[in-house]
Design a protein around this nucleic acid. Structure first.
Length: 924
RNA sequence: GCCCGAAUGGUGGAAUGGUAGACACGAGGGACUUAAAAUCCCUUGGCCAUUACCGGCUGUGUGGGUUCGAGUCCCACUUCGGGUACCA
């Protein structure tokens, strides 16, 4: 019988489906293990070979854990809300739900062909009302919560209301948009609208006027992680800053816990570092500068409290509220113009344009330590969103301040001994302070570190400032002016935002005639008919962003059909958290922050039992495309082979990689590829071979370098695809897809088959396995077990190849050895192993087998190879038995005939014996 | 600028501080075949040596260091990836 992957794979996929082999239920008699993939957005392009990389890795781990006796939860679903379906809907009028459903069907059929062990009964889709019910429900809970900094957790908003009624804001330590000062009396006298506005300052889901990233082209706001370098991640359109009234999540309240929580997670250091940077904790001081001739105090944030004596001017962000308050009449026009000009620029323009610009406000501040009058300027190099939107400028020790001072000819006072600030600022936080003596404080002679500490102490004592920790992490903007997302469970009662009752959830996404904003600029939901509560109150027109649905999906998999709760206590107590999460690094600052926030919030409310959602996380690398190029001589239809192109003036053109094999172009196929190439001529070397150039790029249709897994499965089979993707290189590493090596893996499977079948003869028998065969097997068990734990799947595959080669060479037909080999290979290549397992006469599926344990007695070597070196150089080998004592090894090494040659006329200084490794003889 | 990570044959990549280059691809040679495909065997870092078997030198981006011994550890640098940024 020949190895026929088509028949085998189809047969067992059907069998697993019919027998619900991978259906998972709570089983208290077995330990659980939860393996999760980052669920995909079902795009119209379908899967390419890069997508399954992580899925294969997690599938291997799931099957491995299952064989080890764990009750493994391994689900899959779809992150189904998103922009592409909506953009497509705008162009075609096709409802995004239809597109999404089609794309999901395509994804599913592609995934099924690869033979994953998902429990599809647990599938979730974020756009399914039975799913987004719980997204809305969680949002409602956030609206009804505030963050108590003292208890360091979220608490019900009702607690805050009673506190305010009794104490006002006196002694309140809450995460807030801005610090309020309200007495109990004032609170109690407020009308409902004023109370609502006040509570918005504390709610974890709140409405606020904030600077948002507005993307005009997409017609919506975007969160910080959805913007990179001033362009939207989706589409790459320019983004500008705009003040808008938006729903936000108070993620910043959790900044410190998100940071501290990282220490307990088994994630890669680089990913944790990325999150640390994104959270951006910085310790410093807040300090008040009095504005001369007014009663205004301006608060600034600095990490360099030691440099206050070097402050020669102050700078406000153009958006700062202080600008309006302090600008003097004679500078008003100039300042207004500058502020307006800044506002006109997009974020990107502001970033690109690094020219120094700014205007003087006419106002002066008093340096609180030196008492000097210093001018206050406005400049766009100060950001409104960080700190207080105002800075004290220390040109001697900050390069941005230095550039500004130089440009506007402002004084520069060096504060650190030996620092030359005539050509550049001295930014390092080290040295001895000078020029830092005021009426009440003298820092001269202190180190920078001590000076910072001393100044912080001083400003605290004097009440002119406070020690303060600042975070870069912003609150998440949660409104999107789009159609294809979760509707907010919110209506407006007399202008007061109010939550729908739990009974009225889910609030279904309404139908609209078009997926565009309304004529008067409302979001698409403005087009929905009767978009009100039964009482006639208007419903919220925004929808939630993509990360809303993906923030708690791992919880829903635990109990996906529950209509009473997001997850039952029973299911949550059993499955607890994700033990292994596999996905790309691109979610480091988005999904992985939001999920942790969301989970911590639910934890605070006692709704889930674990504080962190993902215990262990592995990032798979990206599989890039390998594009091929042909080189057309300018203004002709003649193409020149890669090695000759330097002699011509050519334009590189992407060529479909399906027309190329090992970088050699199929010229005839190329001519037929596109009409304009029908008459193509080729210039090649004498061998007549046209060689293409190549480049590693993103896998995409436009570069004609997409490899569809379906084609690989059709030609080689899913088992080959799975093994090959793992064999390609370390899982965590990005690498280009290269189909060239796939034959080797396919050959390996054929060899494996050859251990069982020769023609129609079934070879396995009950013969006693040889010691060599057992050693080969147990070496494999040891290697593969260790490799799977470390995700070194590429070396596992190599180990399988070696073992199969060895077993073939020794013609091992022992079914005892062969069945163990199959169990080891089953996670990697489930179909062929299932078939052969069945052929060995097993009734159960191979998933019910038990993972073998390596027995050291087979691993003991007959002899140990010691390398003998002299002064660490030339070497020869001696063979001794494994239990030979070192003394004897040493004696044997010195007595060896080969040693005589080296030792002639030399003195042995010492001999070093490293157990089982080397004997080094130091000679003189 | 800052923070990570990487650099090993023609290629993808292996190597708890202990015989560098596992495994695979590609390439070259051979067997089988009328031929091709498939399959199998041999060779394959570079240089040198050779009548065969033995062999010699050199070699993991560069320069130093630690060590009996360094691809691996330390310092400095170069290049390439990734993340992030007027974050005060």
């Amino acid at each position: 019988m020949e190895y026929n992957h088509r028949v085998i794979e189809q047969r067992w996929q059907q069998y697993w489906k019919d027998n619900a082999t991978y259906h998972t239920v709570i089983d208290n008699s077995r330990p659980k293990y939860y393996v999760l993939d980052m669920f995909p957005y079902p795009s119209g392009a379908g899967l390419h070979v890069g997508h399954p990389l992580g899925y294969i890795a997690s599938d291997i781990y799931s099957r491995y854990k299952r064989l080890q006796g764990f009750n493994v939860l391994h689900p899959m679903g779809y992150d189904a809300y998103g922009l592409p379906a909506e953009q497509y809907a705008i162009q075609t009028g096709q409802h995004p739900e239809i597109t999404t459903r089609q794309n999901i069907a395509r994804y599913r059929s592609q995934l099924d062909k690869i033979g994953f062990c998902y429990d599809w009964d647990r599938e979730v889709r974020t756009c399914d009302p039975r799913y987004y019910h719980w997204t809305q429900w969680a949002f409602k809970r956030m609206f009804d919560s505030w963050y108590d900094n003292t208890a360091d957790k979220a608490r019900p908003i009702a607690d805050l209301e009673s506190y305010l009624a009794e104490h006002g804001t006196e002694g309140l330590n809450a995460a807030a948009t801005k610090k309020l000062n309200i007495s109990a009396q004032e609170w109690n006298d407020m009308d409902p609208k004023a109370k609502s506005d006040t509570l918005m300052n504390y709610r974890l889901a709140f409405l606020a006027n904030t600077m948002v990233n507005w993307c005009p082209k997409l017609g919506t706001v975007l969160a910080n992680d959805e913007v990179s370098e001033g362009l939207s991640i989706r589409g790459g359109y320019p983004v500008e800053q705009r003040l808008m009234y938006q729903w936000c999540l108070r993620v910043s309240a959790y900044a410190d816990r998100l940071l501290r929580g990282l220490d307990r997670l088994d994630w890669s250091d680089s990913l944790k570092e990325t999150q640390r940077n994104w959270i951006g904790r910085s310790e410093g001081a807040q300090l008040n500068f009095h504005v001369a001739d007014t009663d205004i105090d301006m608060t600034i944030f600095t990490t360099r409290a030691d440099t206050v004596f070097g402050v020669t001017f102050m700078v406000l962000a153009p958006e700062s509220k202080y600008v309006d308050m302090i600008t003097t009449p004679d500078h008003r026009a100039e300042v207004d113009e500058y502020v307006a000009a800044t506002r006109r620029k997009t974020e990107r323009e502001r970033m690109i344009d690094k020219k120094v610009s700014g205007v003087f406000t006419g106002a002066y501040a008093i340096n609180p330590l030196s008492g000097k009058r210093i001018p206050i300027w406005v400049s766009d190099y100060v950001l409104a969103g960080y700190g207080t939107g105002a800075i004290m400028a220390v040109p001697a020790h900050d390069s941005r301040d230095w550039a500004f001072a130089r440009h506007f000819d402002l004084p520069i006072i060096p504060l650190i001994e030996g620092a030359d600030v005539s050509e550049a600022s001295f930014d390092a936080k080290e040295g001895i302070m000078i020029n830092s003596e005021g009426p009440e404080l003298n820092l001269n002679g202190l180190t920078v570190k001590d000076a910072i500490a001393r100044t912080k102490e001083f400003i605290k004592e004097k009440g002119i400032g406070d020690v303060k920790v600042n975070y870069r992490l912003r609150d998440a903007i949660f409104s999107r002016q789009r159609y294809w997302g979760e509707p907010f469970p919110v209506y407006y009662k007399d202008g007061i935002p109010t939550m729908l009752d739990d009974r009225d959830l889910p609030l279904l996404l309404p139908e609209v005639d078009k997926y565009l904003p309304t004529e008067d600029g409302q979001p698409p939901l403005g087009r929905a008919k009767n978009w009100t509560t039964p009482e006639g109150y208007p419903l919220e027109l925004n929808t939630m962003p993509g990360f809303a649905g993906s923030s708690a999906y791992y919880l829903r998999y635990m109990d996906p059909h529950n209509d009473e709760a997001l997850v039952s206590t029973e299911a949550n107590n059993y499955w607890r958290q994700v033990d292994l999460y596999i996905g790309g690094t691109e979610h480091a600052t988005g999904h992985l922050i939001y999920s942790r926030f969301w989970n911590k919030f639910l934890y605070d409310l006692g709704l889930v039992v674990e504080d962190e959602p993902f215990r262990r996380l592995v990032n798979q690398g990206m599989i890039q495309g390998r594009s091929n190029f042909v080189y057309r001589i300018k203004d002709t239809n003649t193409f020149v082979s890669h090695e000759l192109k330097k002699d011509y003036d050519t334009t590189p053109i992407h060529v479909d990689i399906n027309l190329v094999s090992n970088d050699i172009l199929d010229k005839e196929a190329f001519r037929q590829w596109r009409p304009e190439f029908n008459t193509a001529e080729f210039i090649t070397a004498d061998d007549g071979i046209y060689r293409c150039g190549y480049a590693v790029e993103k896998m995409s249709k436009s570069m004609f370098n997409v490899v569809n897994p379906d084609d690989i499965v059709e030609k080689y089979g899913a088992d080959t695809l799975r093994l090959y993707e793992m064999f390609l290189g370390p899982l965590q590493q990005s690498k280009p897809w290269d189909t060239n090596g796939i034959d080797g893996v396919n050959r390996f499977l054929k060899k494996l088959w050859g251990l069982f079948y020769k023609g129609d003869t079934f070879l396995p028998d009950n013969s006693e396995p040889s010691r060599e065969a057992l050693r080969s097997l147990h070496r494999l068990i040891k290697k593969v077990t260790a490799d799977i734990e470390n995700f070194s799947y590429n070396t596992s595959v190599a180990a399988f190849m070696i073992c199969v080669n060895e077993l073939s060479a020794m013609k091992c037909h022992s079914s005892e050895v062969l069945s163990q080999l199959l169990i080891l290979l089953a996670p990697f290549a489930p179909h062929i192993t299932e078939q052969l397992w069945h052929d060995l006469g097993n009734e159960n599926t191979i998933c019910d087998a038990t993972w073998p344990v390596a027995d050291d007695k087979y691993l003991v070597e007959d002899s140990v190879n010691y390398a003998v070196s002299f002064n660490g150089k030339a070497r020869f080998n001696i063979q001794v038995s494994p239990d030979t004592p070192s003394d004897e090894v040493q004696a044997r090494a010195l007595a060896d005939p080969a040693a005589a040659r080296w030792l002639e006329g030399k003195t042995v200084v010492k001999v070093i014996v490293v157990p089982r490794k080397i004997v080094n003889i130091v000679i003189k």
